[in-house]
Amino acid sequence: MLLSIVSIVIAGLITNNIVLVQSWGMCPYLGVSKKTNSAVGMGLAVTFVITLSSIICWLLYNYMLVPLKLEYLQTIVFILIIAVLVQIIDIVLKKFSPSLYNALGVYLALITTNCAVLSTANNSINSDFITMLVTAITTGLGFLLALILMAGIREKSELSKTPKIFQGFSIALIIAAIMAMAFQGFSGFNIDVGSYKLMMMGGALWL
């Protein structure tokens, strides 16, 4: 049991990272990763939403939708749960932590449309409770990790000169590509020699 938990954690954080390997959650990822502070806040908020929504969706699916043979309502029910959850967090944060509320700004509401949350909820119903719980928490933390790394790099790249056509999202995506290669590489993925050469050339050109 412990071994499977460890493997889930490693997968969630690195080898199957929700953003860099599974590519869920790109929109908010590209949007919030400019500064490290907001990145941390966002990552923690998303972790919280993923965990809570996975639990609630798992319970609702297994104890309500399945017995009543209403599995086809899964999409509607899950997304409504997430929307309600985010709304609740919105109200709670506004009251108890206005600084974080302001730092997140519009991206707090956008957690609802974060593919990572719905994707994890959809996959949660395939596991038992403990596996689902561990997967949800590590998925969120994986998101947080990817955010922090990206924010760190982007903060530095703001200072260097980037060609105009690459500014904004273009360079962010290229940075993400390099990080994704690293994360995926941990799972023993074989990148062929040709691709390596391409990457090296591109990297050299940019520098």
């Binding site: 860099l20 390997v21 599974q22 590519s23 590509a177 390099i178 994704a180 290669m181 995926q184 993925f189 074989n190 990148i191 062929d192 040709g194 691709s195 391409l198 990457m199």
Partner: peptide
């Protein structure tokens, strides 16, 4: 160029 089948 198999890398293009991955997320990166």
């Amino acid at each position: 160029f198999s890398i293009f089948s991955t997320t990166a």
